[in-house]
Amino acid sequence: MPYIRVEMLEGRSDEQKAKLAQAITNAMVEHAGAKPDSIFVVIEDVKKSNWATGGTLMSQRK
């Protein structure tokens, strides 16, 4: 039962996330021999004010 968690900045459409989930599922089937119905893909949208890189919030970057 593979569980794949994707955290990324918010802003992608439902269509984009659906395509991403399908691509991840396909990769797990092809490369790990997993069964599609056993794969869980969880996508968490993170606000830019809750994500920092290099000590700077993404919401404060130009």
Results as ranks from 00 to 15, higher is better:
residue 20 L to D: 06
residue 23 A to E: 12
residue 28 M to T: 03
residue 52 A to D: 06
residue 37 D to C: 03
residue 9 L to S: 09
residue 55 G to E: 02
residue 44 E to M: 07
residue 46 V to T: 12
residue 11 G to K: 02
residue 19 K to C: 01
residue 36 P to G: 06
residue 48 K to W: 08
residue 9 L to V: 00
residue 41 V to F: 04
residue 27 A to P: 01
residue 31 H to M: 14
residue 26 N to C: 07
residue 22 Q to F: 05
residue 1 M to S: 15
residue 2 P to T: 10
residue 28 M to H: 04
residue 39 I to W: 01
residue 25 T to I: 06
residue 8 M to P: 00
residue 60 Q to R: 06
residue 15 E to I: 03
residue 54 G to V: 02
residue 14 D to P: 07
residue 13 S to Q: 12
residue 46 V to C: 04
residue 54 G to Q: 05
residue 34 A to R: 12
residue 59 S to M: 08
residue 26 N to P: 00
residue 51 W to I: 00
residue 33 G to T: 08
residue 7 E to F: 08
residue 29 V to L: 04
residue 27 A to C: 09
residue 12 R to C: 09
residue 46 V to E: 05
residue 47 K to Q: 13
residue 47 K to I: 06
residue 58 M to E: 14
residue 45 D to C: 11
residue 60 Q to Y: 09
residue 50 N to W: 07
residue 18 A to Y: 04
residue 47 K to S: 14
residue 23 A to M: 01
residue 29 V to Y: 10
residue 9 L to G: 03
residue 17 K to N: 07
residue 8 M to G: 11
residue 47 K to G: 15
residue 14 D to K: 09
residue 45 D to H: 01
residue 36 P to H: 04
residue 42 V to D: 05
residue 48 K to S: 14
residue 11 G to P: 00
residue 42 V to M: 04
residue 45 D to E: 14
residue 43 I to C: 01
residue 27 A to Y: 05
residue 1 M to L: 14
residue 23 A to D: 11
residue 6 V to F: 10
residue 39 I to T: 01
residue 54 G to F: 01
residue 56 T to C: 13
residue 49 S to V: 09
residue 33 G to L: 07
residue 26 N to G: 01
residue 25 T to Y: 00
residue 49 S to K: 10
residue 32 A to K: 04
residue 11 G to N: 07
residue 20 L to G: 01
residue 61 R to E: 14
residue 29 V to C: 10
residue 59 S to L: 05
residue 20 L to N: 03
residue 24 I to H: 06
residue 2 P to I: 07
residue 31 H to K: 14
residue 58 M to Q: 15
residue 20 L to I: 02
residue 49 S to A: 10
residue 21 A to P: 08
residue 7 E to G: 14
residue 22 Q to E: 14
residue 17 K to S: 05
residue 37 D to M: 02
residue 24 I to E: 03
residue 45 D to Y: 03
residue 57 L to E: 03
residue 32 A to Q: 09
residue 34 A to N: 12
residue 7 E to T: 04
residue 1 M to V: 10
residue 13 S to M: 10
residue 35 K to H: 10
residue 32 A to S: 12
residue 57 L to C: 02
residue 12 R to W: 00
residue 58 M to Y: 12
residue 50 N to A: 10
residue 38 S to R: 09
residue 1 M to R: 07
residue 16 Q to D: 14
residue 52 A to G: 13
residue 38 S to V: 06
residue 26 N to S: 04
residue 6 V to Y: 07
residue 1 M to P: 04
residue 24 I to K: 04
residue 12 R to T: 08
residue 6 V to W: 02
residue 18 A to S: 15
residue 52 A to W: 11
residue 22 Q to V: 05
residue 54 G to S: 15
residue 7 E to D: 13
residue 19 K to N: 11
residue 33 G to H: 02
residue 30 E to L: 11
residue 4 I to F: 05
residue 9 L to I: 02
residue 41 V to Q: 13
residue 59 S to I: 10
residue 22 Q to C: 03
residue 49 S to F: 03
residue 21 A to M: 14
residue 11 G to A: 05
residue 38 S to N: 15
residue 1 M to H: 08
residue 41 V to I: 15
residue 59 S to C: 11
residue 15 E to D: 12
residue 20 L to F: 06
residue 60 Q to I: 00
residue 37 D to K: 12
residue 5 R to P: 05
residue 34 A to D: 07
residue 40 F to K: 13
residue 41 V to C: 08
residue 59 S to Y: 00
residue 30 E to V: 09
residue 5 R to M: 03
residue 8 M to Q: 11
residue 18 A to K: 12
residue 17 K to C: 08
residue 7 E to S: 11
residue 33 G to M: 12
residue 38 S to Q: 10
residue 11 G to C: 07
